[in-house]
Design a protein around this nucleic acid. Structure first.
Length: 282
DNA sequence: CGCAATGTTCGAAA
DNA sequence: TTTTCGAACATTGC
């Protein structure tokens, strides 16, 4: 399940594999993946286009072509797989889009759940695309300011975990890292956001930056293995402290990790380190 | 067989 | 108007 670190790792892998390649043909086997424009237009427009660079914003990948930006979101299980020239490209029922390059190599998009989406927009227009234009800051020190974050917490009536999943607050956190970040900051996932103390907000802010940076450095988590697609490196296992560890001892205090549901999402936390605090609203 | 899982969008509710 | 909630989306795997 690609969250920011996985998408960033995919981006790096793609740059090394397909930068500067020219599209010869595009085949779409599952049209719903292409959000816009119409599928034939999408395929036609890409012919002859060169991939100048590949960028990322939140969990979105952006292929910067000569005249267009191709926005790609992997959602839950989207993957890219690269096939060198003179190699047989694997095509199965999960292969939905195939980009063939003029040098004989190709890039195919696979997605078991068919939830991923692609859209082609005019060059330079990706920041205005619906999912992207409303994204909050990238979770790195320079962009993600503590002041702005505290303000969002103060003014929100939601619980802290759903707030972290809201991409308008900070871009790139998903269900896995949201649990990890709350564990590190010792905050209960159901704590109302506006009841966090200044100290808690600060440690949460730090935890978000630290955990994502560490995961990016490590090359992304892998719940499931991500195939070779994206680069020789492969993916290291980032060690998770709470996500998927139901019943296992908390790495800090040995209390068994609990799993509950918060805003319809499976949520893992340590009932000893992360206590729900009853606080009067000021 | 029924349901959980996942991220985003959309429509409804507040 | 804005924010939040819940359904929908597609499919697999338990």
């Amino acid at each position: 399940m690609p969250e920011l670190p996985e998408v960033e790792t995919v981006r790096k892998g793609l740059v090394t594999l397909v930068q500067d390649k020219t599209v010869a043909e595009v085949i779409v086997r599952w049209p719903k993946i292409i959000e816009s424009p119409a599928v034939d237009t999408f395929c036609q427009k890409l012919i002859g286009q060169v991939i100048n660079d590949i960028a990322r914003r939140g969990k979105f990948l952006i292929f910067e072509f000569t005249d267009f930006d191709l926005i790609s979101h992997l959602r839950m299980e989207g993957k890219y797989e690269y096939t060198p020239k003179n190699t047989e490209a694997p095509v199965d029922k999960h292969t939905h889009v195939i980009f063939k390059f003029t040098d004989g190599s190709q890039l195919s998009y696979h997605d078991v759940r068919k939830f991923g989406r692609m859209a082609l927009v005019e060059k330079g227009q990706y920041p205005f695309y619906k999912g992207i234009k409303q994204l909050g800051p990238e979770p790195v020190e320079e962009e993600f300011s503590l002041q702005a974050f505290e303000k969002k917490l103060q003014h929100s009536s939601s619980l802290i975990k759903p707030l972290l999943l809201n991409q308008k607050v900070v871009a790139g956190l998903g269900n896995i890292y949201a649990d990890e970040v709350l564990w590190l900051a010792k905050i209960h996932p159901q704590q109302p956001a506006r009841t966090l103390t200044k100290k808690e907000a600060e440690s949460l802010h730090q935890a978000i930056i630290a955990i994502l940076a560490k995961a990016v450095r490590a090359g992304g988590t892998t719940i499931r293995s991500y195939k070779n697609a994206l680069g020789e490196a492969g993916f290291f296992q980032v060690s998770l402290n709470v996500y998927g560890k139901t019943g296992e001892p908390c790495p800090r205090c040995e209390t068994p990790i609990k799993k509950i549901k918060v805003a319809q999402r499976g949520t893992h936390f340590c009932p000893h380190c992360q206590k729900l605090k009853r606080r009067k609203l000021s």
